[in-house]
Design a protein around this nucleic acid. Structure first.
Lengths: 229, 229
DNA sequence: TATTTATCGATATACTATTATCGATAAAGT
DNA sequence: ACTTTATCGATAATAGTATATCGATAAATA
């Protein structure tokens, strides 16, 4: 009774990240009329290892592939989409209607990913009661009430760093259990709350230090001439 | 001659991601007049392991900490900033002046992270030659020329998924070796080019599946009553 | 001055993720 | 019908990351 259902639980974070890319590729293939795809093919397209691809796919779909044919694209798409919860849409609120907040509010693609922003909040009286991307901006003191009434679990934080923690706390008090944080600070929350950080500094740290390493390497290569691997 | 300089090279990606958060915290401490901090304290603030923090810090700063005192905040800040290259600013170009592109162009904080967007590009004739956030939007056919003349290595892609690969190819041809990709597709590049993806779908995949797992768990707990760890 | 304590750095262990290997299988070619 | 080949799934090996342990040390305290 325990081992009956495949180990849906054991999927790595990294694998989870790859799923949307698989999905994207599969959809492109479907568009162009293809109906079967091998793990090797996906791996090549994504610059990944074929075994890894098979493992990832095995984690989300019970239906396996066939030798020399591969996997059924249509079925894979369905499996991944349902795994990622693109079918049942979750409501979310957003706090901080600045540049970024506005961009997110105006973005129409979230529903494809199973997310719908239903309301925004801000302290600035000039933006309160305005309409951005079809969503009304409410004053902060309405947050708790609205979250509770609409039974909302997801909060998006797009306020300045200095205000992020207090907004976070307010969200948690109001029943939010998953936070998508765009402020460049670590949020302290109790263990029941999920925080996902989207941090420009974090990304740039990776990008620019890789770049620096690359540029250094280039410079050194002129003199050192390493043998290629 | 090889082992003289500390292994600056061996820092993990994950550690690199944490550095900006350390930096942020350190600066906040400095603001409030503190001048020493222990790894334990940082770890607690960030919900991390203290050993991990020490390891991370050791990777970027030669100057160690002292028992019972900790690390010198001022020195740590300098070390991290120089490690992340916040001192020498890199120029970048951006392609795709849509919602997101505009938000990035208007964002004034990049220079703090060692990045300066110097120009934007778009195919839409209505936005070409307009000014967004102080940067001019050029037509696409000027891209190669400008990148070469200004010796630009970093490109930011904020075009729709369908156009991303061709923009990427153009960038690479024009001498770009590091790409910050906001389009939800995998970009195929040769191994000399660094791509860093910023993908809404990727983030949401993580967030919402964690949320789903959490909600499920809650439901089950009502009947199963697992013993707490 | 002796003892206690918080912290350090180094090393070892545990965990997670990726890549390699291998036998099995179904389609394609001979 | 037989052989070859691309692919599969499972398992083993490797690499990468995080956590735990331990002796050493400098500050605080008795």
């Amino acid at each position: 009774m325990e081992k009956d259902q495949k180990q849906y639980t054991s999927i790595s974070k990294q694998a989870l990240r790859r799923l949307p890319y698989y999905l994207n590729y599969l959809k492109r293939l479907r568009e162009s009329g293809v109906d079967k795809v091998s793990s090797t093919m996906i791996a090549k397209e994504m610059s990944l290892n074929d075994v890894q691809v098979r493992k990832d796919l095995a984690a989300v779909s019970k239906i396996g592939g066939k030798p020399r044919k591969g996997f059924d694209i249509e079925e894979l798409i369905m499996c991944i989409e349902s795994y990622l919860g693109y079918n049942n849409i979750n409501d979310a609120i957003l706090v901080g209607a600045g540049h970024l907040g506005r961009a997110l509010l105006s973005y129409t693609g979230f529903e494809d990913y199973g997310l719908r922003i239903v309301a925004a909040f801000d302290i600035d009286e000039n933006v309160v009661n305005t309409n951005i991307g079809g969503k009304i901006v409410f004053p902060m003191d309405k947050l708790s009430d609205i979250c509770n009434r609409l039974n909302i679990h997801i909060g998006i934080i797009t306020v300045p760093a200095s205000a992020a923690q207090s907004v976070c706390d307010l969200m948690v008090e109001s029943g939010i259990i998953a936070i998508w944080n765009f402020a460049p600070v670590h949020l302290s929350v109790n263990e029941n709350v999920i925080v996902h950080n989207e941090n420009i500094a974090e990304s740039l740290a990776l990008l620019s230090s890789q770049l620096a390493a690359r540029l250094n390497q280039k410079k050194n290569n002129l003199s050192i001439k390493e043998n290629p691997v």
